[in-house]
Amino acid sequence: MADLKIDIGGLLLKNPVMTASGTFGYGPEFDDFINVSDLGGIVVKGTTLEHREGNKYPRMAETPAGMLNSVGLQNKGVDYFAKHIYPAISHYDTHILVNVSGSRVEDYVKVCEVLNELEGIPGIELNISCPNVKEGGMAFGTSCPSAREVTKAVRAVYHKHLMVKLSPNVTSIAEIAKVVEDEGADSLSLINTLLGIAINAETRRPVLSTITGGLSGPAIKPIALRMVWQVANAVKIPIVGMGGIMNATDAIEFILAGASAIQVGTANFLDPTVTIKILRGIEEYLDRHNVATVKELVGAMECC
């Protein structure tokens, strides 16, 4: 039986299968379907300093091989999370990372200060790539100076694992990755959604209330693989890959491209048990290829 354990920048995962923020709620939504503690880690819904109502309905459009969303970080704020949600999920025997977002650098900092105090939260995923909020979010992750500023400010106050989630809506994702690594990130997760539009030809109106939204699902997988590979060649810190992973083969492809672990996102909506199927599939692949540890497979794509 292959060894599935993997160390991502000091965070030891029992296996490389995590869930992507915004696609897994806080975990209990999946209790009827799977044993959440079987996963390598979960990343809970984007959390901001203040309560946010999110964007107006409609927030979702189905597209060929994917979907657009513009939820807009609906959440009850970090204090509510710490008081009411955290106690209800801290029993999970897996790493719970909180995805942190905001409109201002000082907001990110305040959220991280609160999360620092929660013993059962070993790390955060700094979201500098949400495309669905008017201010902040993706704006931080699309230029090197602002990515540097927010990572630096958070690193100064946050002492546990700092994963930074990168936006694909940039000219060079490797440049952003290097800046974030310089500022002390422990790992990188990529990619967030790609900015897109869906239009209803009959009504001549955009489908989403926000006009643009974030594209996810298998449609974006080749782009995500390319970006994981580019970033893996540019930085030394571990990468958590995501973007259209629907099955174990997709997950293996991300690992071969250079990801140490993976996050499953949109696939959770189609099959709430998919994460466990992917986990079993990775195990089966490693055994079939006589690979003793997941680690050996990281970045093992053979180009010539």
Binding site: T23, E29, Y57, R59, M60, N268
Partner: peptide, 22 residues
């Protein structure tokens, strides 16, 4: 009736405005 991605509370796509928010 509403447009849904998951159907079990994970995606937060199918919101309706209530007196207590989305």
């Amino acid at each position: 009736e509403n447009t849904m991605a998951c159907g079990f509370g994970a995606c937060l796509c199918c919101v309706v405005k209530t007196t207590d928010g989305h």
